[in-house]
């Protein structure tokens, strides 16, 4: 930031003109709908009967919280986030460590291994839906060839397997993100910190534990927490692979929300939306506290 300048009218006009277009877009197409959604949450608001939209207090919330599917979705969200995150993190960390030192062909390797990042969750879901196909899916074929299974499994049609399948796809997708971010974090460790130490095998492990890890810990905490929010908000893959089925076994909170919207019950959709927002807010507070805690160490 440059030295404090007098905030003249001319300058105010310039700032205003530069910021206004973006601010208007965000206000009209993001904040206004969010607020309207919060209001609708307390109304009876069904797209197929808009003749009366009375305020009904907490009726929508009661209806949502009384639905088994909501609680299933909430439980599934936990599984979906925790298991995906765990494997994404450790596999991504491993990949980042392996790619840390320069070697011949590293650039080319990265260009190929990082490609899932450029794909949309929807397309990735389609890809894996085809691979997990119960009859002509290549995963069944490979597992049969390797003698792991004796007969084809209807992965996406069987409740237990469906969740495993979408999580496998999500892990595949997310490792890249962690690898990229952790590599960037590793590069931020000053070289001087390393030069002092000897580099035999044991020393290297100790160096990682005592020098590298503490240095990148704040960044890691940040990445992980941001990713928790992101995975929670990521119905695309499940939507493409199973649509939340079979029998709600892969529903997470956001696919549940989308079903409310497509079902036309905007009152309930608003209620679910507010519940999700509450959940995320608690997460964000936790995240902000955690990062502040990390920084002050």
């Amino acid at each position: 930031m440059s030295a404090p300048r007098v905030f003249t009218a001319r300058r105010a006009a310039f700032v205003g003109l530069c910021l206004l277009p973006g601010a208007v877009f965000v206000a009209v197409f993001t904040y206004y709908p969010v607020i309207r959604g919060a209001v609708i949450a307390f109304q009876r608001y069904n797209l197929f009967d808009l003749t009366s939209t009375p305020f009904v207090g907490l009726e929508n919330f009661r209806a949502v919280l009384g639905e088994d599917r909501f609680w299933t979705a909430l439980r599934n969200t936990g599984t979906w986030v925790v298991v995906s995150l765990f494997f994404q993190f450790f596999l991504g960390f491993g990949l980042a460590l392996l790619l840390r030192r320069h070697f011949r062909g590293r650039g080319l390797y990265q260009a190929w291994v990082f490609f899932p990042w450029a794909m949309s969750g929807f397309l990735i879901g389609l890809l894996w839906r085809w691979m997990f196909n119960g009859q002509f899916g290549v995963i069944n074929d490979l597992l049969l060839k390797a003698d792991v299974i004796d007969e084809r499994i209807g992965f996406l049609a069987t409740p237990g397997w469906a969740m495993t399948s979408v999580i496998v796809a999500n892990i595949w997708y997310g490792v890249t993100f962690f690898a990229i971010m952790i590599m960037a974090a590793l590069q931020s460790v000053p070289r001087e910190l390393y030069e002092a130490a000897a580099v035999d095998g044991a020393a290297r492990l100790r160096q990682f534990w005592h020098v590298t890890l503490p240095h990148i810990r704040p960044t890691l905490a940040l990445i992980v927490l941001l990713r928790i929010i992101w995975i929670l908000n990521f119905p695309d893959l499940i939507y493409a692979m199973t649509g939340g089925g079979p029998a709600g076994s892969t529903d997470i909170i956001t696919t549940f929300l989308i079903q409310q919207v497509t079902g036309g019950d905007y009152g309930r959709a608003g209620a679910v939306g507010l519940l999700v927002l509450g959940l995320l807010l608690s997460f964000s507070v936790f995240y902000l506290n955690a990062t502040r805690f990390e920084r002050s160490r």
Binding site: F29, P33, V34, R36, I40, T254, V261, G273, L277, L280
Partner: peptide, 13 residues
């Protein structure tokens, strides 16, 4: 903020 909580009101808008 998840985009999806604004989906229904955005449709109305």
């Amino acid at each position: 903020i998840p985009l999806f909580i604004a989906l229904a009101p955005l449709y109305l808008l």
